[in-house]
Write a protein that binds this DNA or RNA. Sequence first.
DNA 1: ATGAAAGCGCTAACAC
DNA 2: GTGTTAGCGCTTTCAT
Lengths: 343, 343
Amino acid sequence: MDGPVSRRSVRPTLETVAREASVSRQTVSNVLNAPHLVSDGTRRRVEAVIARTAYRPVRAGQTLRTRRSYLIAVGLATPAEDRAEVEHRFLHALTERAELRGYRTLLYTAENDEAEIRAFESLLSEHDLDAFVLTGTHIDDERTAWLYQQAIPFVTFGRPWRSVAQHSWVDVDGASGVLAATRHLIGLGHRRVAFLGWPEGSGVGDDRHAGWLAACDEASLPMDGLVVRMENSLAEGRAACAQLLQSGDPPTAFVCVSDAVALGAWAELTARGIQPGQQAAVVGFDDSAAAALVGLSSVAQPLGEAAVACLDCLHNLLEQPAGNSSAPERLLLDPRLMLRGST
Amino acid sequence: MDGPVSRRSVRPTLETVAREASVSRQTVSNVLNAPHLVSDGTRRRVEAVIARTAYRPVRAGQTLRTRRSYLIAVGLATPAEDRAEVEHRFLHALTERAELRGYRTLLYTAENDEAEIRAFESLLSEHDLDAFVLTGTHIDDERTAWLYQQAIPFVTFGRPWRSVAQHSWVDVDGASGVLAATRHLIGLGHRRVAFLGWPEGSGVGDDRHAGWLAACDEASLPMDGLVVRMENSLAEGRAACAQLLQSGDPPTAFVCVSDAVALGAWAELTARGIQPGQQAAVVGFDDSAAAALVGLSSVAQPLGEAAVACLDCLHNLLEQPAGNSSAPERLLLDPRLMLRGST
DNA sequence: ATGAAAGCGCTAACAC
DNA sequence: GTGTTAGCGCTTTCAT
């Protein structure tokens, strides 16, 4: 096998291509960026040289000139046991689709809003980032306010919760997902359907709760004493399930705000010898690997679609003729109910 | 609140700073990149102006001149239920630590070696990537061969398995992790300790198997009929556990090659009314969220350390005076046994 | 120790 | 439709 060899052997530039095709550098540039300005003959001749020499424009030159980097920044959430999977799948879809459009995704980390804004500043001034994709939107989000104020292109995966900033966003309709799940359980004959949720006040949690509410309401099912709120953990989900089972008229189905909580309920049922899917039903949210592993039905977010939608939003912001800023887009995607053994 | 405002208001350049500090652009550049060449007085004066104007060098200019982008590319694995968590934690640590050293991480995706090499090419020629971090090394890895042949700086998280390419790598000592786990079980009094592993031939799986082998060997414990090999899934782990339990002299402990397999064993034991941690023991590998959720003991990879080590390797490759390529580094990190209820 | 000149690769603006 | 000129922000080289 050959040993290492310098990779700097031949590196065609615009100049090289121009010379070989007997045109000016500008014409080569036009073939690439504004082909309609070039006559067919010239265009083909230049394209042939480009293909033969495997010429590729150097981004740094373009960036220096145009202030566009074709780089999109994405924040990487601090590893909290629960978010990793969703984050990973979204990121993968986003990166893969961005590549198709000639963009690359750049990662950054930040512990809080303030740190994230500092990250924006340095990303912007150093690498001329074209746009940002934010996740984990929350009430009083300083990040979106800052970006909006600076007129920097961005989109959030997660709708704004009481935000002053006008911006494009993409989100998954949690209420609709939970509604579908609850309806399914009701259709199966369940008449006492419990909801294991997060404490009130988190936009996402309240949204999912609303879906359960709507389903029970439309079927005129009881709701009193069937809601338990807790932090997001298996242990708490398990305890909540136990608590409900001990009540006089226990539920037969458990709709859960997350897979962690649902797995807790699942564990409690199993421990009591109650087979999920037979004598009782459980549904989670997020379609995690663990859910698939134990056969837990769960509401799956369309992460690939969400990523594409985010890129569409950015496209509209970035490829817009300057000054002509169109209205922000809002897109709510429907999740999909993944049915497994637990229902 | 104020409406959006153009962010192009003031953008100090070297020129700006030079003028305000009454020095040449070159001196400002030296203050930043070679402070020892500048007299104390001048340096302080220039630094003051830099601070006041919040000047930051534009990477595109530097990159154009020096062919260094301060960008490190990392491949994002295709979402396979199992890898997401490890990948996410490694990526987070890598990005966070890279930022501290003035580097940013750029993501790319690729379905296979060939596609990944094409990604290298375009990343290199377009964005002048400084280095690559690869994961998921495997036998006959074309990626490392290519990078090595092109003399491009890179490091792998995962040791080379029969590779011709000489390169720096960082890996976690799976054998040592499983050895520690098995020893722990033996110390607890278990005399028939089973190993649930992957099919032979995967470097990683064989490595972990070797740890179990060594522990049983040193304690003169039986090994015959105590190994079951399977694909990585909960279902197969469960079946394997059931199969072993039905044998004449069933094992009392199960050392597993992954959390997925271990969770399968855990599920089978629970279903049979055998309490993991009481009448039987189970240990997994990777310290996944699911393991923490159900109280499964597991071997945890030191992902943060691994990320730092990868960056150290890259540092040595990148900051090296040209031509003076030091020998590749190899680093095997010890994992940590996370003890929970299942043992 | 500091400054001046040149040029990295590219495209905007304008001339023809 | 094509070429010429200028310059994006930075660092290398060389002169002082």
